[in-house]
Every structure is written in structure tokens, then in C-alpha cells.
């Protein structure tokens, strides 16, 4: 058997430094490999009293139950005892079966502090990521982490599609019900709305209480264009809200429709606010236009500006009509109206 090339006194020094605190205790098993034939060491840490010769080896500790006879070398590490101490059990085959217990409390507690810090950090990171994803969607979070998208204070000039969504008649509902009912109800509608925005790689710029401002195209994740993504999201939202309304009506509750305005154009996107409180947003003429279109869209309808309408590669079999509108701060204009046919 190889041995360390160390003078006896140095070996003794190392033994004192590392092994003494481990309080090793051992048993050798009989020929059956199941009963104690011989023992030694300090057993006070590992069990009440001293093991008895002839007793089953798995009586030494519950974790050994059913393990004997053991044909191979085997190790169970960092077993937490009832006395708040940790120990390792090594089973060693050498002219019979030997079982050794060693106290590893000190090193385990040190490792636990590190493990605890690492795990806690990971959990906090995971929670932060989840919150961020809820605001801007996973594709944006992935891009931010990969460094391929940065939210710059000076903003980025880009072509995007903006969609405003509003739950109609909410003010009336708000006046007629308890605040808790109002909160629960609006959250059910917003769940559908925001879910579809994120499902279509949109970003939720802001939730406005009974609606939302959302933008598409900020991260360039749209295979058929940001306009198409916004429109697809709008149609699915309309269908899901209609199902939700059916369910509410079957329970004798008020149903509320949604109206939407979609416009596309150049905008500057970035962060606004101070170092302590910042928020993503988009500025641009078409952003105001989308807001004005939404204000004119009846429940169940979508109003689109011409650039958005022209960019759609798939209108999903929906019928559009042109409408002449006079919009506050914008003036007279022609828009496209789709009274959504539910699928």
C-alpha cells in the first residue's frame, strides 16, 4: 500500500490538524458482512452508547438500513444527525468490510454558508428575471442579458408599431362596484391582453389602469413584421375576451368589450426617468396617433392607420372598411376599421 513520504512527527502534526477533529470511529464486519466483529474510535458523536459486537451493522445509523452486505466501496457524505452535527460514512472493502464514521460538521457548516449565499442569489436572480419578463417579455430579457439590446437613456430611433388597448365601459363598472371586485375583474381582462402582447413579442410600455400601451418591433423579433404581430395579437385578444365575457355573462356578471388602435412609424425608444426610477417608453407621432385611434374604436373593433394596414401580409379573413376621423391634436384622417369577426 503506498504511504506518504513523511517523517512520523509531520504525519502526527497533520493528523492532529485534520483528523483529530473528525473524531473517526469504525467497525469491522464479520464474514457475513452484516454484523459487527470489531470496533474502535470515538462513537459519542454518532450514536447513544457504544455499538455492541454481534449487532447488525445497519443498527449503527438509520441511513445504513438495508445496505449490508455491501460488495463495493461506498460513501454517504454530509449526513445531518439529530444533534445538529454532520458526518460522513465510508464503507471500505479491505480484507473484509469496514465502516468508518467521521465528523464533518465544521467543513459542512462552512460550505453551507457558501451554498446558501449562492442559492439565495440564484433565487433572487430568477425572481428578478421573472419580474422583468412580465414587463418586457422573455425575448427582450434574453437580448438584454446577451448584450445585444441595451436600453439607452438617449434612446434608439427605430420603426415600430404601437397598439393601445382599452377595456370599454370600465369607468361605469368602477363606479358601481367595490374596489376589490374592480381590481379582480380588471386583472382578469389584463391577464388576457398582456399575455397576448408578450406571446407576440410585444413590449408592455405601460398599463393604464383599464388598458395598456404596447409596442412591437423594438427587438426585431417579428418574422412577418411588427405590424402583423400586433394585429395577430389583437385578433386573439378579441377572441379570448369574447370567451371570457361569455363565461362572465353565464354567471350573471357584466361583460366588457375591448377597443384597440394600432399605428406604425418611426419612434425613439429608450428609458425615461431618474437613476432611481426608470421606465421604458416610446416617443413618436404615430404613438399619439395610436392612442387617438384607440379612443375612437368601438368595443370589439380595431382601428389601424394606413401604414399598418398596408403592411399586413395576412388579414386573417377579416373585413376592413375605411373611416374618416377627426382626431384631437391630429386633425382629419382616413383609417381602417375592422369590426372583428370572432373565430
Amino acid at each position: 500500500m503506498p504511504t506518504l513520504d513523511l517523517p512520523k512527527h509531520l504525519m502526527g502534526y497533520l493528523t492532529d490538524m485534520y483528523l483529530k477533529d473528525m473524531k473517526p470511529a469504525w467497525v469491522r464486519l464479520d464474514a457475513s458482512g452484516e454484523h459487527i466483529a470489531e470496533m474502535g474510535g470515538d462513537w459519542s458523536v454518532y450514536c447513544d452508547g457504544t455499538p455492541s459486537i454481534g449487532n447488525p451493522a445497519d443498527d449503527l445509523n438509520p441511513v445504513l438500513m438495508g445496505l449490508f452486505p455491501m460488495p463495493d466501496d461506498f460513501r454517504l457524505s454530509q449526513i445531518e444527525g439529530d444533534n445538529e452535527r454532520y458526518f460522513d460514512i465510508d464503507i471500505i472493502q479491505h480484507d473484509g468490510c469496514w465502516v468508518m464514521f467521521s465528523d464533518v460538521t465544521s467543513i459542512t457548516l462552512r460550505l453551507q454558508k457558501m451554498q446558501q449565499a449562492t442559492n439565495s442569489l440564484h433565487l433572487k436572480y430568477s425572481r428578478s428575471q421573472q419580474i422583468l419578463e412580465r414587463h418586457v417579455g422573455q425575448p427582450v430579457v434574453d437580448k438584454v442579458h446577451a448584450g445585444s439590446y441595451t436600453l439607452k437613456a438617449e434612446g434608439i430611433r427605430q420603426y415600430i408599431t404601437t397598439m393601445f388597448i382599452d377595456v370599454r365601459n370600465f369607468t361605469v363598472f368602477n363606479e358601481a362596484h367595490d374596489a376589490q371586485v374592480v381590481m379582480t375583474t380588471i386583472n382578469a381582462y389584463l391577464d388576457i391582453i398582456l399575455d397576448e402582447v408578450l406571446n407576440h413579442q410585444g413590449i408592455i410600455d405601460k398599463v393604464t389602469g383599464d388598458g395598456a400601451m404596447t409596442v412591437f418591433g423594438v427587438t426585431g423579433e417579428h418574422k412577418h413584421g411588427a405590424e402583423q404581430s400586433a394585429y395577430d395579437a389583437a385578433l386573439i385578444m378579441m377572441n379570448r375576451v369574447a370567451s371570457h365575457n361569455q363565461e362572465r355573462e353565464s354567471q350573471g356578471l357584466e361583460a366588457m368589450k375591448i377597443g384597440m388602435g394600432i399605428a406604425s412609424g418611426e419612434a425613439v425608444t429608450g428609458v425615461v426617468g431618474t437613476h432611481k426610477r426608470r421606465a421604458f417608453t416610446a416617443f413618436g407621432r404615430h404613438v399619439n396617433l395610436a392612442a387617438r385611434l384607440e379612443s375612437k374604436a368601438p368595443g370589439g373593433s380595431i382601428l389601424l392607420d394606413d401604414p399598418t394596414y398596408q403592411a399586413l401580409s395576412d388579414r386573417k379573413g377579416q373585413t376592413f372598411s375605411t373611416v374618416q376621423l377627426t382626431l384631437k391634436g391630429i386633425g382629419d384622417m382616413q383609417a381602417w376599421r375592422n369590426d372583428v369577426t370572432l373565430s
Binding site: 441511513v63 457524505s77 454530509q78 449526513i79 445531518e80 459542512t108 451554498q115 442559492n119
Partner: peptide, 12 residues
């Protein structure tokens, strides 16, 4: 309170 488990703890 979250306390990271090290190794194994056996309960019955």
C-alpha cells in the same frame, strides 16, 4: 426562511 440542505437529513 430558506436554509440550504447539505447532504441528507433523514426523518421518519
Amino acid at each position: 426562511q430558506y436554509l440550504s440542505t447539505m447532504g441528507v437529513k433523514v426523518d421518519r
